[in-house]
Amino acid sequence: MNRQELIKKAAEIKTPSKQAARQFQEASPSLVDELNQIMCSRSDLEKLIGKNNREMMLDNHNNHARFMSALLVDYRPEVLVDTVFWVLRTYRAHGFQPAYWPAQLNAWLQLFQKHLSPEAYEEVSPVYNFIIVNQAFFDRSNPACPEDL
């Protein structure tokens, strides 16, 4: 699947409501803190992120929450797709392994179920599930994803 096909699939995701976006944004600081605790307590953390990348991972979690807060307010499929391509390529170059992303994204989803209303969870989770399901196509080392950025 190429970039244009991913954008087309991302466009099928229903734009989250302003209420869901606001709830996500308001919860973000505590969600980031809890996610950091979850990820830092993993016994396989070094295998997931490589050596000496803990601070980079923590920065990624903060940046992720800020980006998603903005994206949920103004959902643009092409911005989602291009950002995921960039993030995976950049962090992989620093030693993050493909298994880090589903571990992190599934942890986010668990936190959303715990801290967001069921309605907000139903509106936010499709964006995360889209990334998880399509990770192989975002991974630039995957030959199924042609260089078309």
Rank of each mutant, 00 (worst) to 15 (best):
P126F: 08
E55V: 01
L31E: 06
L105V: 02
T15I: 05
Q23C: 02
A144C: 07
S69K: 12
Y75E: 08
N62A: 13
L116N: 07
F138C: 02
N52E: 13
P118G: 04
V127P: 03
A27T: 11
T90R: 09
V124K: 05
M56I: 10
R22G: 05
A70S: 15
Q110I: 02
P29Y: 14
L71H: 12
Q23G: 06
A65L: 05
S43Y: 06
V73F: 14
F85E: 11
G50M: 05
E147N: 11
M57V: 00
N53G: 08
A10R: 04
E34I: 00
F85L: 11
E26H: 09
Y121V: 13
M39G: 06
L88G: 02
D148I: 08
K51P: 01
L45D: 05
H61T: 07
K18Y: 01
Q4E: 12
E12S: 04
A11L: 03
T90F: 11
L149R: 09
F85K: 03
K114E: 13
Y100C: 09
W101E: 10
P98L: 10
Q19E: 15
V124Y: 04
V87P: 00
P143S: 09
K8M: 06
H61Y: 12
D59V: 00
L88W: 01
A10C: 04
K47S: 07
V84C: 07
R22A: 10
L35D: 04
M1H: 07
E46R: 15
E119N: 03
R140H: 11
D139G: 05
P126C: 08
L58I: 09
I7A: 10
M57H: 08
W86S: 09
Y121H: 13
Q4R: 09
S117P: 00
E147M: 06
R89N: 02
D148R: 08
K114F: 02
M57G: 03
K8G: 01
E12W: 00
V124C: 11
A70D: 15
I7Q: 09
V32H: 05
R54D: 03
S43G: 10
A99G: 04
S17H: 04
A120K: 04
H61C: 10
N36H: 09
P16I: 05
N134A: 08
M56T: 13
N36S: 15
V81E: 09
F112Y: 15
V124S: 14
Q4I: 01
K51N: 10
Y100R: 02
N2C: 12
Q37N: 09
T83A: 12
L111V: 13
E123S: 00
M39E: 02
D33H: 07
Y121W: 08
D59Y: 14
